[in-house]
């Protein structure tokens, strides 16, 4: 299918969180999010509770999708970095490993130059982790070794969700 399913495991999740927490400190950022290109929040750190993270994830993905569409129209593959400047807060949005979106929110305590520099380094680390993650889920799929919890799911389980 178009995109292989994104599956997150404990080990990589911890590694990813460590990378963005380091980025948060080094870039002097307020909040950092990682969002799947389909709009699903993967993780975040910093002052996350101040934001509606689910909406943020969906709109970021919509934004990347729309600018990606624009890029294609003018013959570019994609715009891999977007920058939105506000009065106080700014958003630096970049694509990592071709499929994950890294969102860095920062204010005047940081600067675009610093954020750019640090994002670049973290992106490489994140790319490596996501690369391993994809490999791992492919291997698990091939070997049929999935701990997937839904094998036993019943009609009632689903009906209960909506009750």
């Amino acid at each position: 299918m178009a995109n292989p399913q994104l599956i997150m495991y404990d080990e990589e999740f911890k590694q990813i969180n460590a990378v963005i927490e380091k980025l948060l400190r080094e870039a002097n950022a307020k909040v950092i999010f990682l969002v799947d290109k389909n709009g699903q929040l993967i993780t975040g750190c910093g002052e996350t509770e101040r934001f509606d993270t689910t909406s943020l994830a969906s709109l970021t993905a919509g934004n990347i999708a729309a600018t990606g569409g624009l890029a294609k129209l003018i013959g570019e593959k994609e715009f891999s970095i977007l920058f939105h400047e506000g009065e106080k807060d700014n958003l630096h949005i970049s694509i990592v490993a071709g499929r994950v979106i890294l969102v860095v929110l920062f204010d005047t305590r940081s600067s675009l130059g610093l954020v750019r520099l640090r994002v670049k380094k973290s992106s490489e680390e994140l790319s490596a982790i996501f690369g391993r993650l994809m490999q791992k889920s492919e291997e698990k799929e091939k070997s049929g070794d999935s701990e997937f919890p839904f094998a036993e799911i019943t009609d009632d389980d689903i009906d209960n969700l909506f009750s």
Binding site: M1, A2, N3, P4, Q5, L6, I7, M8, Y9, D10, E12, F13, K14, D36, N38, G39, Q40, I42, E147, F148, F150
Partner: peptide, 15 residues
């Protein structure tokens, strides 16, 4: 594609 997160025990699906 649904996103399955074993670390936070979540499954996200898009309709």
């Amino acid at each position: 594609m649904s996103f399955i997160n074993y670390a936070s025990r979540e499954i996200n699906c898009k309709i």
